[in-house]
Design a protein around this nucleic acid. Structure first.
Length: 818
RNA sequence: GCGGAAGUGGUGGAAUGGCAGACACGCUAGGUUGAGGGCCUAGUGGUAGCAAUACCUUGGGGGUUCAAAUCCCCCCUUCCGCACCA
């Protein structure tokens, strides 16, 4: 028999008609398993690069089903967002229409790949039935003060004409369109994710089954640093400037202060300065440059002296206060104490403007007395010098001592700072969930009642980005009576970032049709956390951080009783072709539809899983597909061969080919299971099944019983079934099995077949071992001391200990592992 | 600059201390075929040799070990994340 397209269609129909993958959340007779792939943004057809994600997910879901789990594997659409709008502008089509058209296309693609989704749970974030609850989520956050509006310098994309979250700015450029991002002072909506900084960081420790890489990326993004906030009095003014530093040990070397131009103290400090005009000019100049968020390599530090001095609280010395362009406004207090001897940035600045450089940490590599000729700052640890009572201390110890001292004297206070900023969620664009807030001339900012949801996204026909939301032009939408006082009021016209939609969707799958609540808490508590989440690493700090935050928030509200959404995370690598990520613009996309048409869905599935370790990037090679096709055909041909074999009872299986094949069957089961239970090593699992097929072929020529041969063939398709469901189902029924292959349980290796054949090994030893041998590890100690083993001794050790492993190289035993 | 991952045949990759190159692609030869494709058989890291075989070989250099792709030290290269975060 051969693999044809008809096999795909036949089994897809049977699965659909029998509702094979439907899950009833209340039914928990078997242990649950929630297998989730990151839902797609329906921007165009899927290519094989996208396919890897879903194929891995489906292999996991199908494998777990066979292991006896009740597996939930849902699919939905992250359907709001900019690309839909951009297409709308370009092709004069409504974003909804464009999105739904893509959804339809992708749905049919996924079905043709044989995915085992419960399609009754499909969710679409741009439908009011869904975004109503996104708005509900916003209101919950608002009620707790975690959704708030403030004016702040925010990231602004000129081309998309909207604000962006920090996470959406990549190397100073818009993640979407690569336009350089500007800083603009705007009043915007934020979620207070920073309230959760510490917990988001701490709980990374719980995520043992997340890739190390993702945890590190989140850790860096949250960016916790411990230090001291130090008060510097301004000479001649009743004013203090707080500076955060992680190096209190270098305080004696602080020779000047530098402020960002936005620092609140600046205007007072320069008020009576003779240089006031020049300083204001400088600030104007910096302001003009500041908007560009990215600092390129040739960014030049510059600053201007304010004319005022601060007092170093430890030395009592007066140190000049500068305004400088290299001080970040958003981090710490926007003012820093500068220690040019031990900070390369301060060093550059001090050199340029001739400011004092005063070393206070001994550089072990620097000769004494050459401070004046310093060519760079020493940023390492070391012994303190020129630091009064603290001289001689090591910097780590000094940090503690100096911090203690400052706290008792009231000079400074220990502080923890995070790099993480609040999540900017408002967008000045059309295709998103409206923010459920009203502005009343009397009551101010008023939240809508939950009962008034959803705030429907009004129809529109113009989407051109103008810098303000297109909703603002819709008179019918804007006008509303204030929910509090009934007076005429106006709606908020910004929409929400699409990452809000996707920050909670995994909860909605549990009760997708519920119109009373966002999700049923009881059911959600039973089914979550997600057992296995699968997706691309590009979401390591966007979606995955936001989802963790929202989950923690909901847990705090006692709406759910778990505080991490994803138990295990798997990040698959990209598939590249011609040295680049697949993309339409590069013209290197491989269309799966064509492959399925030519070779069948299982050939594609098998090849994508076989292409390489799934967490690593893989290179697509069209020619190599042929190998997967060949293998499937070769495997199916085994079924035809069965007929020609002789019947034989199990008792007289004596041939060594027979024994070897039995051993291979069980070894393969053992190894494939290990590969799947570990880190989804599909590539090696498949190669092992290929070995089994090869050996089964070979054993025919030697002579083999029908029973054993049948076992081998049956095992091949059973082990293959998570990868090649259609072919396996077909083979299963051809082999006369009544049950569907997915109702059969995963095979178990019988240990008696796995044992290595130990008996002959002693014979292979030709009398003596290498003269100078030291036996490592597990050999009995006294034998090691004797330094050599004779044949009888080896035989004794082997017979007494039945070793796991006897290693012999070229006829000599070199180690015995017991 | 900081943090991380990786470097193995013509190619994708196996092997996490035990005979490197499993499995697959490609290639070569032979068979089958009207031809092409498909399929079957054999071969396929390098050098020398008719051959058995010998020597060399996991980015480079050193070390530990009876034994290193694997562990340790130094260096080189590539990719990824963060980046004037004080």
């Amino acid at each position: 028999m051969a693999y044809t397209k008809e096999i795909d269609k036949k089994w897809q129909r049977i699965w659909q008609d029998s509702n094979a993958f439907r899950v009833r959340v209340k039914d928990l007779k078997r242990p649950k398993y929630y297998c989730l792939v990151m839902f797609p943004y329906p921007s165009s057809e899927l290519h094989v690069g996208h396919g890897r994600n879903y194929i891995i997910g489906d292999a996991v879901a199908r494998y777990k089903r066979m292991r006896g789990y009740y597996v939930l594997s849902p699919m939905g659409w992250d359907a709001f967002g900019l690309p839909a709008e951009n297409q709308a502008i370009k092709n004069n089509i409504h974003p909804r229409e464009w999105t739904l058209r893509n959804i339809k296309k992708i749905t049919s693609q996924l079905k043709s790949w044989g995915m085992s989704y419960d399609w009754e749970r499909e969710i679409t974030t741009c439908f009011p039935e869904y975004y109503r609850w996104t708005q509900w989520l916003f209101l919950q956050l608002y009620k707790k003060g975690l959704a708030y509006r403030k004016e702040a310098p925010v990231n602004w994309c000129r081309s998309c004409q909207t604000v962006l979250a920090n996470e959406q700015v990549v190397e100073g450029k818009c993640e979407r369109c690569s336009t350089e991002v500007l800083l603009k002072n705007l009043k915007q909506w934020f979620f207070k994710i920073t309230d959760y900084s510490q917990r988001l960081l701490d709980d990374l420790g719980k995520l043992k089954n997340w890739p190390e890489r993702v945890r590190l990326m989140q850790e860096n993004w949250i960016g916790r640093s411990i230090g001291v906030s130090i008060k510097f009095p301004v000479d001649g003014l009743s004013q203090e400037i707080d500076c955060f530093t992680t190096r209190p040990d270098t305080i004696f070397g602080a020779t000047f202060l530098a402020l960002n131009f936005q620092h609140p103290a600046v205007s007072r400090i320069i008020d009576d300065s003779l240089q006031k005009e020049a300083i204001l000019d400088f600030i104007e100049e910096v302001k003009k440059e500041e908007p560009l968020l990215s600092y390129n390599a040739d960014f030049e530090k510059k600053g201007i002296f304010t004319g005022k001095y601060a007092v170093n609280p430890m030395t009592g010395k007066k140190i000049p206060i500068w305004v400088a362009n290299y001080i970040l406004s958003g981090y710490g207090t926007g003012a820093i104490m500068c220690v040019p001897a031990h900070d390369s940035r301060d060093f550059d600045f001090a050199k340029k403007y001739g400011l004092d450089i005063s070393p206070v940490i001994e550089d072990p590599n620097q000769e004494q007395g050459t401070f004046e000729q310093l060519s760079q700052a020493y940023q390492g640890q070391g012994k303190l010098i020129n630091s009064d009572d603290f001289n001689g201390l090591d910097s780590e110890a000094a940090k503690e001592k100096i911090s203690d001292f400052m706290e008792t004297k009231g000079i400074g206070i220990r502080q923890i700072n995070f790099r993480l900023r609040d999540w900017l969620v408002s967008r000045q664009r059309y295709w998103g969930a409206p923010i459920p807030i009203v502005y009343c001339p009397d009551c101010g900012e008023v939240a809508l009642d939950e009962g008034d949801l959803p705030v429907l996204l009004p129809e529109a026909d113009k989407f051109l980005p103008t810098g303000r939301s297109p909703l603002a032009d819709n008179e019918d939408f804007i006008h509303i009576n204030c929910p509090k006082c009934g007076k005429e009021a106006q709606r908020e016209t910004d929409t929400m970032d699409t990452f809000v939609d996707s920050s909670w969707y995994y909860l909605r799958y549990i009760s997708p049709a519920n119109n009373q609540v966002a999700f049923d808490s009881q059911d959600v508590n039973r089914w979550l956390p997600v057992d296995q989440y699968i997706g691309g690493v590009e979401h390591a700090i966007l979606h995955l951080l936001y989802s963790r935050f929202i989950t923690k928030f909901l847990a705090d509200q006692k709406i759910i009783d778990f505080d991490e959404p994803f138990e295990r995370l798997f990040t698959q690598g990209m598939i590249v072709k011609d040295g680049a990520k697949m993309s339409k613009s590069k013209g290197n996309v491989v269309a799966p539809d064509y492959i399925i048409d030519k070779y069948g869905a299982d050939t594609m599935r098998l090849y994508i899983l076989f292409i390489g370790p799934p967490q690593k990037e893989a290179i697509w090679q069209d020619e190599a597909l042929q190998g997967s096709r060949r293998f499937l055909q070769r495997s199916l041909r085994l079924i035809d061969m069965l007929k020609s074999l002789r019947e034989q009872s199990l008792e007289d299986l004596s041939s060594s080919a027979e024994k070897q094949l039995l051993r291979k069957i069980h070894l393969t089961i053992h190894e494939v299971t290990k590969d799947l239970e570990g880190d989804f090593q599909f590539n090696t699992a498949i190669s092992r099944i290929m070995e089994l097929v090869n050996q089964t072929y070979k054993s025919v020529s030697v002579g083999i019983s029908k029973n054993t041969f049948f076992q081998a063939v049956d095992t091949v398709f059973l082990l293959l079934s998570p990868f090649t469901p259609h072919v396996s189902e077909e083979a299963n029924s051809l082999l006369g099995n009544k049950e569907s292959i997915f109702d059969r349980s995963w095979p178990e290796a019988k240990p008696e077949f796995l044992k290595k054949e130990e008996v002959e090994i002693g014979v292979l030893v030709n009398g003596k071992i290498k003269e100078k041998m030291k036996i490592s590890l597990n050999c009995p100690k006294e034998e090691v001391e004797k330094n050599a083993l004779s044949l009888p001794k080896i035989e004794k050790i082997i017979s007494e200990n039945s070793p796991k492993k006897v290693i012999y190289v070229k006829g000599k035993i070199v180690n015995i592992v017991i």
